[in-house]
C-alpha cells in the first residue's frame, strides 16, 4: 500500500485519531522516494495542532504546503485557498490531504469531491482504539459513515493508528488488532498499514508497519536545548 503513485491520498477520521501526524509522515515518506509532493491542510475544525504548524519540516523536504488563508492566526474563519483547486487538477503533483475531524471536518472535502473522483484517489480512514468516543468498532464505523456522507467520497482503506501518545508500547498496538479487524470486516476495507513510533518499531515483525515520527506535540516536548 505504501507504493508511490501520482495519486491523491486523503486522511480522514474521528477527531484526535491522529490524521495530521499520519498525513505528515506519509508526505515525508513519499518525498523520500523522490516524489513531488504537495500537502494540503484542509482542517477547518482545529484551532491548534495542525499540519500548517510544520512548514519548516516540509520546506526541508521540498514538500509544497497549502494552508488555509488564515491558518495559525486569530481569524476563526478558515478560508480555503484557490491553490487547492489547482493542485488537485495538477496530475504532476502527488497530493496528500489532511482533513479536519469527524463529519464536521469532512464537509470541506465535498466541494472538491467531483475533481478528486475524476482524478482517482485513496481515502484513508484513521482509527485509534484509545479514543474515548471511538473505542469500539461499532462507534468507529458510525463515524466512518458520517464522514462518507458529508465528504461525498468513500473511504478506500483503514489506517490503524492506535496509540496513547508518547507512552505507547508495542503491546498497546498488538492489543488493538482485534478492534482493527472488526472495523475491517464491518467496513469491508483493508488495513493499509499500522502506524508505529520509530523507537518501538524494532520490536515488531509484522508486514504492514508504517514507522512514524511524532510531530504533533506540545511545546515542552519539542525543544532540544
Amino acid at each position: 500500500m505504501l507504493s508511490s503513485s501520482n495519486d491523491i491520498s486523503i486522511f480522514t477520521g474521528h477527531y484526535g485519531s491522529g490524521k495530521t501526524n499520519t498525513a505528515i509522515n506519509y508526505a515525508l515518506f513519499l518525498a523520500s522516494k523522490g516524489e513531488k509532493v504537495t500537502i494540503i491542510d484542509l482542517d477547518i475544525v482545529n484551532p491548534y495542532f495542525r499540519t500548517s504548524d510544520h512548514a519548516d519540516v516540509f520546506e526541508n523536504m521540498n514538500i509544497e504546503l497549502i494552508s488555509p488563508v488564515y491558518a495559525r492566526t486569530n481569524v476563526e474563519t478558515v478560508a480555503l485557498s484557490p491553490k487547492i483547486d489547482y493542485a488537485i487538477r495538477d496530475i504532476e503533483k502527488n497530493i496528500v490531504i489532511d482533513v479536519g475531524g469527524d463529519d464536521a471536518g469532512a464537509v470541506a472535502l465535498a466541494r472538491y469531491a467531483p475533481d478528486i473522483r475524476a482524478r482517482g484517489y485513496q481515502m484513508f480512514f484513521v482509527i485509534n482504539e484509545n479514543r474515548y468516543l471511538s473505542s469500539s468498532a461499532d462507534k468507529t464505523f458510525q463515524i466512518l459513515k458520517e464522514i462518507e456522507n458529508r465528504s461525498l467520497l468513500k473511504a478506500t482503506h483503514l489506517v490503524n493508528n492506535t496509540n496513547i501518545g508518547k507512552e505507547t508500547s508495542f503491546e498497546d498496538i498488538a492489543l488493538s488488532d482485534q478492534y482493527a479487524q472488526e472495523m475491517s470486516s464491518l467496513s469491508h476495507l483493508a488495513i493499509a498499514f499500522t502506524c508505529v513510533k520509530k523507537d518501538i518499531v524494532s520490536k515488531c515483525n509484522s508486514q504492514d508497519i508504517f514507522p512514524v515520527d511524532i510531530f504533533v506535540n506540545p511545546v515542552w516536548e519539542k525543544s532540544n536545548f
Binding site: G16, N130, R131, Y132, I164, G165
Partner: peptide
C-alpha cells in the same frame, strides 16, 4: 483503561 483524550473532552466526560 487509559484513553487518549483532549483536555476539553475530559472536562466534559469527567
Amino acid at each position: 483503561k487509559k484513553f487518549l483524550m483532549k483536555g476539553n473532552e475530559v472536562i466534559a466526560e469527567a
